[in-house]
Design a protein around this nucleic acid. Structure first.
Lengths: 103, 103
DNA sequence: TAGATACTTAGGTAATTTATTAAGTATTTT
DNA sequence: AAAATACTTAATAAATTACCTAAGTATCTA
């Protein structure tokens, strides 16, 4: 999932899909890249759960899967919160032991 | 930055650092991996801005850089918010044009 | 000062990722 | 039915990434 967000082309696709559903061609249009490459990126986005798509006629329509986005956001948020908690505990520690510097 | 979070070993290191500062050896301890490999991961974490470190004596102490974590969280949050906004607009659209299905 | 500790650097291999071109397939459009 | 459209698949090639071992360097510790 972070792997999926690690590539600029895929982030651009996610960006585009946040504005609403799009076809493969529409996703490819702003990218300087062949269509098969876009397909590969799309497959990684689908494998990561960030994007879903369905084909109707000859057009495949892609859309964002918000649950996955929320998952990534939560992972980061939890760690940030933990770190901020650690900061508090470090503050407590420094208050209790002012004679021993931290680093 | 998402690239840095894309690897499980590096996420494990971030996890550990969220509990507080740690030496390179402490970061390496739970990982089934040579020390030079841990160093490479550490370098990527530092290059991404997620982690900072300083060497005192022969020990290098690493710590999380919360600003970077907040940045990643914001990137995702903004897109999620945009998508949720799009959902609202799609709802409005469907309300206004019930005879034309979305896909 | 000799040895142990804690990284660090260098160099090289295997796996993964990213991208390409060429050649399909399935659906409209004309 | 013929041509155009919108992907898809397959097979590579180039670039990155992830690892490792071996051999340093700089600090402690005894």
């Amino acid at each position: 999932m972070f792997q999926a967000l690690a590539d600029p082309a895929r982030r651009s696709m996610v960006d585009r899909l946040c504005h609403g559903p799009a076809s493969v061609s529409e996703l490819a249009e702003p990218l300087v890249m062949s269509l098969p490459s876009v397909m590969q990126h799309l497959q990684m986005l689908e494998a990561s759960g960030l994007v879903r798509s369905q084909k109707v006629g000859r057009v495949r329509t892609c859309r964002i899967e918000p649950a996955a986005l929320r998952l990534a956001e939560r992972w980061i948020g939890e760690r940030r919160a933990y770190w901020e908690g650690s900061l508090d505990r470090l503050g407590d520690y420094l208050d209790a032991h002012p004679e021993e510097p931290e680093a």
